[in-house]
């Protein structure tokens, strides 16, 4: 029998989606706060997938109609793609809406809304990355914390930070690091580094030893072939000037 090519193939991969943590079931408050966020960073939020996290809300015993919140989110331009921490009723509603129930622990980036006691008027934007806490870079006003990585990043691994990304170890060829903010690599950078991935043209890449396969800021990129010999294997900073990537040695 001849081998026919397979019709499909499964591969494991990671899909990045912000997590929306709700602290109130007040639909008006939710919509207002979300609208403020969207106004801050319309590009970032447009058509964004979203995971709805109801753990905090359910801790406060505030019931929320999952169908209603889904409709609200869709109306203002989000794509709810998951629910976590829902109660039985909410999970059931999610299932009827074909929204997957996520049981994975902390991962991805979160948007916090209605942070219970602290700040009701201007809730903070926070993120829960695996190794640290990093607010989403809602440019340019929001304060930005950084994601710190101390482990080497090996070929085939990907790191995504919603703020700045600081890496203390090497980044191997075949690895990919991405940040909405700046990228700092205090070691050798051999893989691909993409800063300002949501269009922040002010983002920069700093590294101790530039041997990258690709560098990009806000979509403008250079591959290793375009990197000139002078800066190769040197400490550099990389930034955008009139849509041109400038690579400058750090003296």
């Amino acid at each position: 029998m001849l081998n026919t090519p397979p019709a499909l193939e499964f591969k494991s991969s990671t899909f990045f989606a912000p997590i929306l943590i709700l602290y109130t079931h007040d639909m008006v408050a939710i919509e207002q706060t979300l609208q403020e966020k969207i106004n801050l960073a319309p590009e970032f939020f447009r058509d964004s997938p979203l995971i709805i996290d109801l753990r905090e809300l359910n801790k406060l015993n505030q019931d929320l109609d999952f169908v209603q919140i889904t409709q609200l989110l869709r109306r203002i331009g989000f794509f709810p793609v998951g629910i976590r921490g829902g109660n039985e009723q909410q999970n059931k509603q999610a299932r009827t809406l074909s929204i997957p129930i996520d049981t994975v622990r902390e991962q991805g980036n979160s948007i916090t809304i209605g942070e219970a006691q602290k700040q009701e008027a201007a809730p903070e934007v926070t993120a829960a990355a695996k190794e640290s806490i990093s607010p989403i870079a809602a440019p340019p006003q929001a304060p930005v914390a950084a994601t710190l990585v101390t482990q080497p990043i090996r070929s085939g691994q990907r790191i995504y930070a919603s703020g700045d990304l600081i890496i203390l170890s090497q980044v191997s060829a075949g690895a990919e690091i991405m940040a909405e903010g700046n990228i700092h690599v205090y070691n050798t950078l051999r893989g691909r580094a993409l800063a300002g991935v949501h269009g922040n043209t002010a983002a920069r890449i700093f590294c101790f030893d530039l041997q990258a396969e690709l560098i990009s800021i806000a979509g403008d990129y250079k591959t290793s072939e375009d990197l000139n010999k002078q800066t190769y294997k040197n400490p550099v900073q990389i930034y955008l000037q009139n849509h041109a990537l400038i690579i400058k040695e750090i003296a």
């Binding site: 482990q151 080497p152 090996r154 085939g156 691994q157 191997s172 060829a173 075949g174 690895a175």
Partner: peptide, 24 residues
């Protein structure tokens, strides 16, 4: 060397120790 590097990435992310947040 490249394949070993790839394997090291898998060792640090897809093992039981990694999944349980234990020592690597």
């Amino acid at each position: 060397v490249r394949d070993s590097d790839r394997m090291l990435g898998i060792l640090s992310s897809k093992s039981r120790r990694a999944e349980r947040n234990e020592d690597p």
